[in-house]
């Protein structure tokens, strides 16, 4: 059951880290200090999102298989369901984080 708690909190924690990373990258490229070129930032953001997205997809498949293995009346069944949905929602949210970087070519649109 402890592992399932990790599988519920893990994906959405990964989303938070990804969100912070994207926010930091945009801030690095778009704030007055101009730490980074926008195109470089978009490249880094896209590659890191793809890598995390693939990992999340694998996590989703594993969560799906695990939820099918656990019988309906098992005590940990609700946590397995929660883990599955958590990874699904987190995957969508991670892709949403990439949306502005993917669709806007410059900081001002």
């Amino acid at each position: 059951m402890t592992r399932l708690v990790f599988h519920i909190a893990g994906p959405i924690t990964l989303w938070s880290l990804h969100f912070i990373a994207i926010y930091a990258l945009i801030s690095a490229a778009c704030a007055p200090r101009g730490l980074m070129d926008v195109d470089v930032m978009r490249g880094v953001a896209t590659i890191s999102t793809l890598l995390i997205g693939i990992a999340m997809l694998a996590w989703l498949v594993l969560a799906l298989r695990r939820s099918r293995r656990i019988p309906d009346d098992a005590e940990e069944r609700p946590l397995a369901i929660a883990a599955l949905w958590s990874v699904g929602i987190s995957l969508m949210a991670i892709l949403a984080n990439l949306w502005p970087v993917a669709t806007l070519a410059t900081c001002s649109g």
Partner: peptide, 19 residues
């Protein structure tokens, strides 16, 4: 704020409607 930042927060704000 930069438009790109606004879009990031806009996307996250829309996402919270899912859960």
């Amino acid at each position: 704020l930069p438009i790109m930042s606004l879009s990031l927060f806009s996307a996250a704000s829309t996402m919270v409607a899912v859960p």
